[in-house]
Every structure is written in C-alpha cells, then in structure tokens.
Amino acid sequence: MTQVRKAIIPVAGFGTRLLPISKAIPKEMVPVVDRPLIQHVVEEALAAGIDEIILVTRTGKSAIEDHFDAHFELEHSLATKGKDALLETLSAIAPPRLKVTSVRQPNAKGLGHAIHCAAHLLDKNEPFAVILPDVLVKPQPQGQGCDLGDMVKRWDANNASQIMVEAVPEEEVYRYGIVDCDEPQAGESADMRGVVEKPKPEDAPSRLSVIGRYVLPYRIMELLHDQAPGAGNEIQLTDAIDRLMQEGQTVQAFRMRGRTFDCGHIEGWLQANTTLAREAGFDI
C-alpha cells in the first residue's frame, strides 16, 4: 500500500482569469466536457492511489463540497424512475473509498499559506500530494498511465520529493517556475538543484516548468509554518522547497508523459473542452 494517501487541493482562489464565468460559479465547478473541472482532478488523484482529498477553500465555494456529497432526493428520484445509467454516473462521482475533507483559508496569503492551512489534517511525518486544479493533466490519446501515480511510486521507492515538470518554449519561461536540473527523459526523475520563479529567458536554468503536481514530505509543513513572504508578498511553496533542498533533502523533477490543459484561463479551458470532447466521441 502506498504511503501517500492524501492530496491537498487549494480551491480558494477567485478565478479572475475566467471572469465573468467565475463570478457566481467556483472556477473549479466550470465544466470540462461532461463534468466539472474539480471532478477531473479528483479522478486523477484516485487513479494515483490517493483516496483522501483535502480541499482548502473559502466562503462562496460550497458547491465544490456539495458536488461530492450525497443527494438523497435526486438519487431516490432517479432510482424510482429506473434511470440506472444516470444513477451510476452520480455514484461514480464519489466512490466509497473517497474521503473529502475541507478546511478554510481565512486570508489569501499565497499557495504556501493555503497548503499550510491543512497541516493539522496530516499525521506527523506523513507525506502528501498537492494538486493545483487549474491545470488538467491527461494521458496521451494512446494512453500511458497516470503521471501522478508514477510520482507516488517514485516517492515510495526513494522518499525523494517529486515535482512534476514539462518543457515549455524558451520565450515562455518567464511565465512559470523553472527548475534547475539535468533534463530527465519523459516518465523519469532527476535531482533538482533549485527552482527559479518566472525568470527571464536568458537567465532560465532550463525550459522545464513546474505544472502543479507535487509529492512532498511533512517537513514542508514545518518549513511553511515560519516561511517568510516572498514574491508578491505571499508565502510561496517554492521558497519552502528551496529550504528543503538546503537542508540536504533530495527533491526531484519528474518529467511528465501526458498533456496539460491550463483551464484557469478561457483559451486553455476552450482547448480542453474541444480536444477532450472529440477524444470522447462527441461530434463537435
């Protein structure tokens, strides 16, 4: 049984890049093909062997929790009318092994702060995953397994933190956190020397960008507890990861094999819907 059983998913953001869609609807509930974005992400966690989800949320986001809750009246109505296929679809949203817990982020103080809000829900020395829900990670059409699941296996094998990365064009490195490491092959990991937030192309140590999937030790929570604000005057997860490396702990960049869709902005969301709908057989 894998050691990594819990994933923290920060969902407290305002979703400004998706306005006006996200004005009254949490961005995580915006549909991608036939189900909301958050369901895609939870299904990814389940495929990786992770069955406990911790949502870091805020006021106005209750629809996310409701989505994974039981709806007795609706289920009873579908059962009475013999709509078994729809009933099975509802049941698949939250299989019996899935446990969803939520905790509030009282103030928007950055990703590191959001993650630390869930520290009390982890056991001492318990590793955990972090999944940023704006980005969908999907296998290639021919299917190559679950990248997050492979990261979990690598943690199990060597207890080294895993940071998922993908190559981006040189002219776009300024938009991302870029890792400093010897470039691994797809599906492999390499030891990191550091990570630079949004560097100029000429200063970037590589073209490998961090894409929002992490497997980390509990020690990160202890570092975040007293982490000083960094870029944007916010508590940055990357700063705590840098401190982890300074302590001599191994942090590895895992180069993904699949594809990413940045659903945090309109263009990426439209691309995800168009591409994945066609692959699912919808005539669009």
Score class of each variant (00 low, 15 high):
Asp226Lys: 12
Leu224Gln: 02
Ala228Tyr: 06
Leu224His: 03
Val210Pro: 00
Glu247Gln: 13
Val210Met: 15
Glu234Cys: 10
Ser209Val: 02
Asp242Met: 09
Ala204Pro: 01
Asn233Cys: 10
Met221Lys: 03
Thr238Asp: 08
Glu247Lys: 11
Ala228Glu: 15
Tyr214Asp: 01
Ala228Thr: 15
Ile220Asp: 03
Asp203His: 08
Ala228Phe: 07
Arg213Gln: 14
Met245Gln: 11
Leu216Ser: 02
Ala204Tyr: 08
Ser209Gln: 08
Leu237Ser: 09
Gly230Met: 11
Asp242Cys: 11
Leu224Cys: 10
Ser206His: 12
Ser206Phe: 06
Arg219Pro: 00
Ile220Met: 13
Gln236Ser: 06
Gly232Phe: 01
Gly212His: 07
Leu216Gln: 03
Val215Arg: 06
Asp203Thr: 01
Glu234His: 13
Asp239His: 10
Pro205Lys: 14
Gly212Tyr: 01
Leu237Ala: 07
Ile211Trp: 01
Pro205Ala: 13
Gly230Cys: 06
Ile235Arg: 12
Ala228Trp: 08
Leu244Pro: 11
Asp203Arg: 02
Gln227Val: 00
Asp203Met: 05
Ala240Tyr: 08
Met245Cys: 07
Gln246His: 10
Pro217Phe: 05
Leu208Pro: 05
Asp203Tyr: 00
Leu237Tyr: 10
Arg219Lys: 15
Asp242Phe: 02
Pro205Arg: 10
Arg243Val: 12
Gly230Pro: 10
His225Tyr: 03
Asp239Tyr: 03
Gly230Gln: 07
Leu224Arg: 03
Tyr218Leu: 00
His225Ala: 15
Pro205Gln: 08
His225Asn: 13
Leu223Gln: 04
Ile241Thr: 09
Asn233Lys: 13
Tyr218Asp: 05
Thr238Met: 13
Gly212Leu: 09
Val215Trp: 04
Ser209Cys: 09
Leu244Asn: 05
Arg213Ile: 07
Ala204Glu: 06
Glu222Gln: 14
Ala231Asp: 13
Leu223Asn: 02
Pro205Thr: 11
Leu223Trp: 10
Met221Ile: 05
Ser209Trp: 00
Arg207Asn: 14
Ala240Gln: 05
Met221Arg: 04
Asp242Leu: 12
Leu223Phe: 05
Gln227Ile: 08
Arg207Phe: 03
Leu244Trp: 08
Ile235Lys: 14
Leu244Ala: 06
Met245Leu: 12
Ser209Glu: 01
Ala228Val: 14
Ile235His: 04
Glu234Thr: 12
Arg219Glu: 15
Ile241Trp: 13
His225Trp: 02
Arg213Tyr: 11
Ile211Asp: 01
Ala240Asn: 06
Gln227Phe: 01
Leu244Arg: 04
Arg213Cys: 12
Ile220Tyr: 06
Asp239Phe: 03
Ile241Asn: 14
Glu247Ser: 01
Gly232Asp: 10
Leu237Asp: 08
Glu234Gly: 00
Glu247Ile: 03
Pro217Leu: 05
Val210Asp: 06
Ser206Gly: 06
Gly230Thr: 04
Arg213Thr: 08
Tyr218Gln: 06
Asn233Tyr: 11
Ile220Leu: 14
Arg207Trp: 07
Ala228Leu: 15
Gly212Thr: 10
Glu234Leu: 14
Gly232Cys: 07
Gln236Leu: 09
Ile211Gly: 02
Gly230Ser: 06
Pro205Val: 09
Gln246Pro: 00
Val210Gly: 00
Gln246Thr: 05
Val215Thr: 04
Asp226Val: 12
Ile220Arg: 12
Val215Gln: 10
Pro217Met: 05
Gly232Arg: 02
Leu223Val: 01
Ser206Gln: 11
Leu208Ser: 05
Ile235Leu: 10
Asp226Pro: 01
Val210His: 03
Asp242Val: 15
